[in-house]
Computed example of a mutant assay.
Amino acid sequence: MGSTGASSGRRSTESRDRDSEGRARNARPRDGLGRPLPYGADGVSRQPEGVARTPEETVTEAQALLDAGKPFHAHEVFEDAWKSGPEDERALWRGLAQLAVGLTHAARGNVTGGPRLLRRGAEAVQGWAAEHGKPQPYGMDLAWLVSWARDLADEVERGERDAGTVDAGARAPRLRGA
């Protein structure tokens, strides 16, 4: 009895999700923390990719998503700024994206990856501010963000937050300070 592959649980290459240019795109629905859900499940709307925003629009939209407990989605907004913004600001936006992903992982219960990404993002943001002499670009309080990220990373590692109990909305940083 040969296998037809129909019961392998994987979608065939012919039915993989592709964009109009043929690039792979996963159309599976996602939850509020970006985790994939089964096809057909109700998920949270995704952030559109490749949107050019002003820095102020980026900060405002990312803050709204963080406040709503959607740090994965905020990361995508920061990623757009990192990929489309001025070259000299890319490290800033990449660091902010890492902070959002770190919060995402901490909220998912990843007690290793969450703190690691929070610290990596904090280091990037702090380094960018030091290099450019701009501790508050676009009204953001980078020193406060660095402190927030390091404190949360420490809490998660010390077990002050049980795996999976970091409430992303309640622990969302205030990009423009406390």
Score class of each variant (00 low, 15 high):
residue 2 G to W: 13
residue 4 T to W: 07
residue 5 G to M: 11
residue 5 G to K: 13
residue 5 G to V: 08
residue 7 S to P: 00
residue 7 S to V: 00
residue 9 G to L: 06
residue 12 S to R: 14
residue 13 T to D: 13
residue 14 E to S: 14
residue 16 R to C: 10
residue 16 R to E: 13
residue 18 R to P: 01
residue 23 R to G: 01
residue 25 R to N: 03
residue 26 N to G: 11
residue 27 A to T: 13
residue 28 R to L: 14
residue 29 P to T: 04
residue 30 R to S: 08
residue 31 D to H: 05
residue 31 D to T: 02
residue 32 G to M: 05
residue 32 G to R: 09
residue 34 G to H: 06
residue 35 R to E: 11
residue 35 R to Y: 07
residue 36 P to K: 13
residue 36 P to I: 05
residue 37 L to S: 10
residue 38 P to G: 09
residue 43 G to L: 08
residue 43 G to D: 06
residue 45 S to E: 15
residue 46 R to S: 11
residue 47 Q to C: 06
residue 49 E to T: 14
residue 49 E to P: 08
residue 52 A to I: 08
residue 52 A to F: 04
residue 53 R to T: 01
residue 53 R to D: 10
residue 55 P to A: 10
residue 56 E to V: 14
residue 58 T to A: 11
residue 60 T to Y: 12
residue 60 T to P: 00
residue 60 T to F: 12
residue 62 A to L: 02
residue 63 Q to Y: 09
residue 63 Q to V: 09
residue 65 L to G: 01
residue 66 L to E: 04
residue 71 P to T: 06
residue 73 H to W: 06
residue 74 A to R: 06
residue 74 A to T: 09
residue 75 H to Q: 10
residue 78 F to A: 03
residue 78 F to Q: 03
residue 79 E to C: 08
residue 80 D to Q: 10
residue 83 K to I: 00
residue 84 S to R: 15
residue 87 E to A: 12
residue 90 R to V: 01
residue 90 R to P: 04
residue 92 L to I: 05
residue 92 L to H: 03
residue 92 L to N: 04
residue 94 R to C: 07
residue 94 R to E: 13
residue 96 L to C: 08
residue 96 L to G: 08
residue 97 A to T: 03
residue 98 Q to D: 13
residue 98 Q to R: 11
residue 104 T to I: 07
residue 104 T to S: 10
residue 109 G to V: 03
residue 109 G to W: 05
residue 114 G to V: 02
residue 116 R to D: 15
residue 116 R to M: 14
residue 117 L to R: 10
residue 119 R to M: 05
residue 121 G to R: 03
residue 122 A to R: 01
residue 122 A to Y: 02
residue 124 A to V: 02
residue 124 A to M: 04
residue 125 V to I: 07
residue 125 V to L: 06
residue 128 W to M: 07
residue 129 A to W: 02
residue 130 A to S: 15
residue 130 A to T: 13
residue 131 E to F: 03
residue 131 E to K: 14
residue 132 H to Y: 11
residue 133 G to N: 11
residue 134 K to N: 15
residue 135 P to S: 08
residue 139 G to I: 02
residue 140 M to Y: 04
residue 142 L to Q: 06
residue 144 W to R: 13
residue 145 L to A: 08
residue 147 S to P: 00
residue 148 W to P: 05
residue 149 A to W: 01
residue 149 A to R: 02
residue 150 R to K: 14
residue 150 R to D: 13
residue 153 A to D: 09
residue 154 D to F: 05
residue 157 E to D: 15
residue 158 R to M: 01
residue 158 R to P: 00
residue 158 R to G: 01
residue 162 D to S: 15
residue 164 G to P: 06
residue 165 T to P: 02
residue 166 V to A: 07
residue 169 G to Y: 04
residue 170 A to G: 13
residue 170 A to W: 11
residue 173 P to I: 07
residue 175 L to C: 04
residue 176 R to D: 05
residue 177 G to L: 02
residue 177 G to W: 04
residue 177 G to F: 02
residue 178 A to W: 10
residue 178 A to H: 14
